[in-house]
Write a protein that binds this DNA or RNA. Structure first.
Lengths: 336, 336
DNA sequence: TGCAGTAATTGAAACGTTATAAATCAACGC
DNA sequence: GCGTTGATTTATAACGTTTCAATTACTGCA
């Protein structure tokens, strides 16, 4: 039915001619305007369905100023394994059928993180923005709040003004990870953190530190490198620690890459996982099922995260106030 | 300078008032029309720069029918580890600054692969299309060729009509992988293939089979599962083979996931990598650097692939004929 | 019968751009 | 001096939609 090649793509004018109503009437009928007779609305809807009418995005956008586009600021440097794929899949799942499309805009934490946001605002390139790797006083959040522009951040901030966010409870993760290692008898746990600017770094640090203090065990935070450092540097830092006076016997790893680096460091220094040390890692992909030796992991469901962020943004763009538009994913206990 | 909040966003009318030229003149001057006096073009360009004028996408799109959008059909099911991230980064790198934006459209090989393409064509949602996981007689290619719509496929087809593609030489990869295993003294190599519908499956098969025949060694192609099978099923299939009468002593793995599954199968069956068997794997991410035991890999640069595809699509959209718009990435020899 | 009041519909304008066709103007040859 | 040419510029229409203000049709009531 909708496969008819009617020659020309149907517009409101086509529907107008087809039904005998004026273009304005057709437009309002399709919009569900109640001041248009119910009978008319039916007739128009039927014709639209029959001819496969789809409103022209450019025309609507020009007239209304709304773009029907959501922009995702995507980090093009480093990634947790599988992060992008899962996250993006969740977003597109939710947006399919809503009429919104997602555009991907590169976001490099090294360069000016505001530039892409400014471009979007200034040139009206989207109706809403999603982004990740949120900082405690993220300039993007500040700018978007000022402009009263809909957005959802992956991660919280420390601004007092409420805004929509979706986050994973990294503080609990760190706490549970330490507890898990302590339960295995470990007495010196090590943590490799992301860059200090990110909010979740503070959450991880706080959860980690309070848990190690509570348990009264030794700890260290790997110095000189972050999760975003080049893998060889991470590997080198971990090896240095293993050859130090008091190598750790437990590792809390925030991503797959770090976990593999820690495993490699153990292996390369002649230590045996499960004997000399244990690892607890956060993971976003299923690959750890095939890693040997098996390690204990906590799964962060990034597909669900993407879904939650997209749903929240839709609500925000629909006019819901930001207050209460938050979602904190809780970690399940480490398991293998 | 371009940060002035001039109250209103500048349009051609603003520039017209500013320069004293008519809107039409300004438009053509900015377009670089040579029939506009050089002096005028300068004046207009200066004013545009000074006011930070950016053409309105919706208006331009409505008028010209060109969307300035490129759609990427993205598989939301399975992925090679890191595929999406690298690939997408390459694409956005090239497109940054061209005025084109990328929208991501979900493509599920299980459902109708033509549906998203039809929607894009019918509703004029993009000026060009990129997609992956190309089939030998891919219906999307057929449709896009018929519609004379610009696209670049990741992977070749067997259609006689030429069309732009970017591919990795999987035949050579398979051949080299086998040769590498043979050089290590392996006499029975095993291969796990993607689904039969994909063109690159045939390339892999051909390269693999001709290499094993040439070398005169035993071989098998893991039956009952494909690269897209659920990881537990893959693991089970590999374990079955290990417990069979003649377990393989060499593995050719087309992706990270399979390689890890093969390593796990070796480990779980008590075999030792490097002694009882060797693995050669294709990889798209840096994670294997940290896998122990180390395995030999061939790197497929998906960022470069994304870049190549985006560049090619720009050229195609610019009017270049499809003939000659092809790029075959060659594998470097396996190394660790 | 006339008229206010409501319900339903409609014409026209506008969003910002580009393409077409027409207008303006100076210089030129005769 | 006058039509012709070539170089620039411009008015106008159109892309498809939404919305304002205005029109038309209908109802009930005095």
């Amino acid at each position: 039915m909708s496969d008819d090649i009617q020659g020309e793509k149907p517009t409101l004018r086509t529907l107008s001619q087809e039904t005998g109503f004026a273009v304005a009437t057709v437009s309002r009928a399709l919009a569900g305007d109640l001041r248009i007779a119910a009978r008319t609305r039916e007739t128009v809807a039927e014709a639209a369905a029959r001819l496969g009418y789809v409103p022209d995005r450019a025309a609507r956008r020009l007239r209304t100023g709304r773009t029907q586009v959501i922009s995702l600021l995507l980090n093009t440097q480093h990634e947790f394994l599988g992060f992008t794929h899962e996250f993006l899949s969740g977003i597109t799942e939710v947006l399919a059928g809503t009429g919104y499309s997602v555009t991907v805009v590169p976001d490099s934490p090294i360069e000016d993180r505001l530039a892409p946001v400014r471009t979007i605002l200034r040139n009206n390139l989207a109706d809403g923005i999603l982004f990740t790797r949120t900082e405690a006083f993220d300039p993007r959040v500040r700018l978007l709040l000022e402009a009263d522009f809909p957005f959802v951040s992956h991660g919280r901030t420390e601004f007092t003004t409420p805004h929509p966010w979706v986050d994973f409870d990294n503080e609990s993760f760190a706490r549970q990870a330490v507890a898990h290692l302590v339960a295995k008898g470990r007495r010196h746990v090590s943590l490799l953190l992301p860059g200090d600017q990110f909010t979740f770094t503070q959450h991880l640090r706080y959860g980690f530190l309070s848990a190690v203090r509570e348990a009264g065990i030794a700890h260290d935070i790997v110095p000189g490198v972050t999760l975003d450092s080049p893998p060889p540097e991470i590997a080198a830092a971990l090896m240095r620690a293993r050859h130090g006076a008091t190598p750790p016997d437990g590792y809390v790893c925030v991503g797959e890459v770090t976990a593999l680096a820690a495993l490699a460091a153990l292996s390369d220094s002649g230590a045996v996982h499960g004997v000399d040390a244990d690892i607890v890692a956060k993971r976003a992909s299923p690959i750890f099922d095939n890693i040997r030796p098996r390690i204990d992991t906590v799964f962060e469901d990034l597909r669900a995260t993407g879904r939650a962020m997209a749903e929240m943004l839709l609500r925000r763009m629909g006019g819901e106030p930001p207050h209460g538009l938050n979602r904190l994913f809780l970690p399940s206990p480490p398991s293998r």
